[in-house]
Design a protein around this nucleic acid. Structure first.
Lengths: 191, 191
DNA sequence: ACCTGAACACCGTTCAAGT
DNA sequence: ACCTGAACACCGTTCAAGT
């Protein structure tokens, strides 16, 4: 295993375990068996290393979405599975999820990361387009509909994690939110 | 003006100007005319100070939502205005928005902050309930519907800020996303 | 080409001391 | 009650030096 890969692996592990603050170059170096500034030989700085972790996960996410698209099933079923996988990723790896989708310092990185992030969204948009073709979703412009779905599910995951919309009664979890969203999005005839 | 208020004011200004990383206790002390550890006499630590900034803004947000609710206008019009004000707050004060809605270290604070955050959501939910009463929104449980709307708009603001769903063509902005969402949410008869 | 160790400037936090 | 200044441990980053 290449040193740079080991460094990314260590950073991801530290991130999962202790949050982004735990990903110090000294801890990464120690966990990777190198000195605390060896990472600088592979990444421009700490943010670039975190960006590499995010890039790897975006590529995995895009692959997951693409894989769902190639399954033999109804488009709406495949979309639901993809959304569920997405929300489970957010629930099981909250620190990593936050790095990918809600970290301005990472988001501003152009290049490979930006490309991987857009590839993820594109793969997701394909699933939405398939649903539209079978009239399981309304015939509005695909990028707008895919964007709304992507944003809504992201918002549900993010607010759920932060507890910002919990009320005494009527608490809503991510799955219920997704179900409600798909229900109101279903074209008239199929409701 | 009390010292503690001056400290909060300075912290908010530093946050707006240079992001959360610029809010160092030394900079806050300097801007407030006190030493770099005077803040510890008013707040337990740096996160608690940032939490106080967030609390203040959540209270403002709740007041804004409540004020919209008391205007003389159609409920749906008032809700649209509130959503627009919300998204403008996110656009004009991105660092503050991120502190309130996407910062896990701040979100985990219980007490006054949690209370203010829930009060904001409650005020928003009232606007949604009014729309349901005039049948401008479907008769699903109010907390679920308000939660979905809140989360969706948050997701749109957050992803827009991070550029995570921009595609070459069909780019979607927050206003379009909100409009599309309200359109698909409108009950059958009123479409 | 890849890595190390010392050094620098900066930070959050603690603490004894001042009024 | 409120504040200060020194001190501590930690951090990202730089740089000269090693193989």
């Amino acid at each position: 295993m290449k040193t740079s890969e080991r460094i990314i692996e260590s950073a991801a592990a530290l991130l999962d375990f202790g949050g982004v603050a735990a990903v110090t170059l000294r801890a990464v170096g120690l966990a990777s068996g190198v000195s605390h500034n060896a990472p600088y030989k592979h990444f421009e700085n700490r943010d670039a290393l975190l960006g590499a972790v995010a890039t790897r996960d975006f590529q995995k996410l895009a692959a997951t979405f693409t894989a769902f698209g190639q399954e033999r099933a109804k488009p709406l079923t495949k979309l639901k599975k993809a959304l569920q996988a997405f929300s489970e990723y957010g629930r099981d790896y909250p620190n990593r999820y936050h790095l990918l989708f809600s970290n301005p310092d990472i988001a501003k990185q152009q290049g490979e990361l930006q490309q991987a992030a857009l590839a993820s969204f594109s793969a997701f948009a394909c699933l939405v387009a398939d649903c539209q073709q079978t009239e399981a979703l309304p015939p509005v412009p695909t990028p707008a509909l895919a964007g709304l779905l992507y944003a809504s599910v992201h918002g549900l995951i993010d607010l759920q994690a932060s507890g910002r919309m919990k009320t005494e009664k009527g608490f809503m979890n991510v799955s219920e939110g997704i179900a409600l969203l798909l229900k109101v999005l279903a074209p008239k005839g199929t409701r």
